[in-house]
Write a protein that binds this DNA or RNA. Structure first.
Length: 188
DNA sequence: AGCGGGATTAGC
DNA sequence: CTAATCCCGCTT
């Protein structure tokens, strides 16, 4: 039984996104919105590498939108997509080096799995939007990441979803068979 | 100032 | 399969 629940330290995010993404599975995303306190456990993530990854928002270099990806590790990168959805990422690698991990799905006790399945539904369920962009996710506050000692097993990987470039790269990580994980192409 | 695309989702 | 819907980055 997990006894401690500590915020993830800055060093956790200092590594390449391909290592941080699987390491984040099973970790807690804690969100305070007004009186409501939500604790959700990540079950699906995707790694987006730096300037070499053509599927990453940081591929073409630093802009105002993707600046957080180039900043210090452990900060929230939130972007708005298709005119209606927000997606939440955490920055990785040292300041000056781009890299991020997209949160695709999570589970929460007492909630139907579908509510937290998919990056758009996850942010919608938690009330995350552009105001959260740049937030330090290592600092206990309205939005942060924590470790309660839970280590999920097994972890599977497959191609990232919804991207055109570098579709062969196995940079999506998930708990196989979990009801909140995207059903398509669950390869090991 | 205008244009086109997008790490999605719901609905037909 | 396609619409919804708007921010962002790039071109004029």
């Amino acid at each position: 039984m997990p006894s401690t629940c500590e915020p993830l330290p800055r060093d956790f995010f200092l590594a390449p996104p391909s290592l941080v993404a699987p390491a984040l599975l099973g970790k807690l995303l804690i969100c305070r919105r007004g009186r409501a306190l939500r604790r959700v456990r990540l079950v699906e993530t995707e790694a987006y590498l730096g300037t070499g990854d053509r599927a990453a928002h940081s591929a073409a270099g630093r802009t105002r939108r993707n600046a957080v990806l180039f900043g210090p590790p452990g900060h929230a990168y939130v972007y708005f997509i298709y005119g209606m959805h927000y997606c939440l990422n955490v920055s990785t690698l040292p300041d000056g080096e781009a890299g991020g991990v997209l949160f695709r799905a999570a589970e929460e006790e007492g909630m139907p799995p579908r509510a937290l399945s998919g990056p758009g539904r996850l942010t919608r369920a938690l009330g995350i939007d552009l105001r959260d962009n740049g937030r330090d996710l290592t600092r206990p506050g309205s939005l942060y990441l924590a470790d309660d000692g839970y280590h999920p097993y097994p972890v599977a990987q497959g191609p990232r979803i919804g991207i055109r470039h570098d579709a062969h790269l196995q940079l999506r990580f998930f708990l196989p068979g979990h009801p909140a994980v995207s059903r398509t192409r669950q390869l090991r």
